[in-house]
Structures are given as C-alpha cells and as structure tokens.
Computed example of a mutant assay.
Amino acid sequence: MGQWAYKVVYVDYRGRISCEGEETLIGNERRSAFVRRYFNSVGRDSWELVSVQPLTSNSAYYVFKRPAQDGDYEEPAAPAVSEETPAPPTPPASSGPTVESV
C-alpha cells in the first residue's frame, strides 16, 4: 500500500486562504472565482480533494491528498528554544490591590 501526503487548506470566504503558513488574499474578483483559481493551482500539483470540514457559514477546512513524493514529509525547522527558564517579572510597586494568578 502506498503512502499519502496531505495538505490542509483553510478557506475564509470573506477573502482569505491559508495553507501551511502562507496566506492568499482575494484580489478584485468574485469569491467563488478566487477559491476556484486557488484550488486549480493545488490540482496542478497533483493534489486531490478528499474532505471538507465546515467551520462556519463563511469558512471551512479542505483536505487534499496525493501519493507521497520526495520532500512531502520534511517539516520546517522549529525556532530555537532557550534552555533557561526566564525569571518571572517583578510586579511594579503600586498602591492598588494585589492580583494573584491561579
């Protein structure tokens, strides 16, 4: 059985598409043409729509898949994380009540 690669695309029909950290904003065109144009570009890269998960009346997640290719499983490098735990900030002196976080 072959392996699959997946692409999840968020579509906000008010004019935004977000996929893998990249956003595409609507230009001067109809919303349906905007989404169709984007999905056509995804299809040219061999992605096939396999699922739609509606979120609201104006947005949804679209899941695409294709047979896995070289580079499909590469994850972007995570930002470096400091090993040291920073000290909590010292609250400023004030004459008001003390607020404690739970």
Rank of each mutant, 00 (worst) to 15 (best):
K65M: 15
A80I: 07
N28L: 05
P89I: 05
V11K: 01
S94D: 12
N58L: 02
A93T: 07
V35G: 01
R44E: 15
E22S: 05
R30N: 03
D45C: 02
S18C: 05
F39Q: 14
E20I: 10
E75S: 10
V99L: 08
E29C: 10
V11L: 04
S94M: 05
A68E: 15
E20Q: 07
P97R: 07
T24L: 06
V8S: 10
D70E: 03
A5N: 01
P76N: 06
N40Q: 14
S57D: 15
F34W: 02
W4V: 05
E83L: 09
R31V: 09
Y62V: 00
L25T: 12
E22I: 03
P54L: 09
V35T: 11
P92E: 12
E83V: 08
S59F: 04
P92Q: 11
I26T: 01
R30G: 04
G96N: 12
Y6A: 11
R16Q: 14
S41Y: 04
G2Y: 04
Q53E: 15
G21Y: 08
V99T: 02
A87Q: 12
Y6L: 13
D45F: 01
V9K: 07
D12E: 11
W47N: 13
W47E: 13
K65C: 14
Q53R: 14
S101M: 06
D12T: 02
E75Y: 07
K7P: 08
S51M: 14
E48T: 09
S57V: 06
T56A: 03
R14E: 07
N28W: 02
E75R: 08
N40S: 10
S95N: 12
E23A: 02
F39M: 14
D72Q: 09
A68M: 10
E84Y: 03
E83F: 03
T85H: 04
V35K: 00
A68K: 06
R37G: 08
P89A: 13
V35P: 04
P86V: 10
D45I: 00
D12Q: 07
K65D: 09
L49P: 02
P88E: 11
S59C: 06
R30C: 02
R16P: 01
D12A: 03
F39G: 02
V35S: 01
T85Q: 08
S82F: 06
C19L: 03
T85I: 15
Y10K: 12
V99G: 00
A68V: 08
Y13W: 04
P79Q: 14
G2C: 02
R14C: 01
Q53L: 12
S32L: 08
V42I: 12
Y38G: 00
N28T: 06
G43L: 03
Y62E: 04
F34G: 02
R37W: 00
R44K: 15
